[in-house]
């Protein structure tokens, strides 16, 4: 392990943060991680999304799903905000994924260019 001490210091710091912080989850991002998704680059999308979320310190949960039958549109993710429609974005690249995250989660704008489906929750 890199440094046990470093890890222990981190634990102390994070425990303090956790008690101080108590904000609600603002959304869920569901990434398609089936065989088709992974082959189309879902891992890079996951990396970009989690990086963007952490950079902006958003309380968003990232979860995965398998193949949803739209393999030709992969990589795909869904964004679900509580009480709003579930929006499915497709043909993602790390760059447009970051842009969609910012637009949808911060500016509350749906990036219609990449929307491939919309469901009532």
């Amino acid at each position: 392990m890199k440094s046990l001490q470093e890890l222990r210091d981190m634990r102390k710091r994070l425990e303090k943060d956790m008690t101080a912080r108590d904000d609600k989850e603002i959304a869920k991002v569901i990434i398609g991680m089936g065989t088709c998704g992974i082959a189309a680059g879902a891992r890079d999308i996951l990396q970009a999304v989690s990086d963007e979320i952490n950079k902006r310190d958003l309380n968003v949960k990232i979860v995965q799903t398998g193949c949803i039958g739209m393999c030709e549109e992969e990589p795909i993710f869904d964004i679900v905000k509580p009480g709003e429609d579930r929006i499915t974005y497709g043909n993602l690249t790390p760059d447009n994924a970051r842009q969609i995250i910012v637009e949808h989660l911060i500016n509350n704008r749906i990036d219609t260019e990449h929307v491939i489906a919309r469901h009532n929750n």
């Binding site: 634990r11 994070l14 425990e15 989690s50």
Partner: peptide, 12 residues
Amino acid sequence: ELGEIPLDNNEV
């Protein structure tokens, strides 16, 4: 080592 801290914490 981390106890209650989840492994999917960004820093971890």
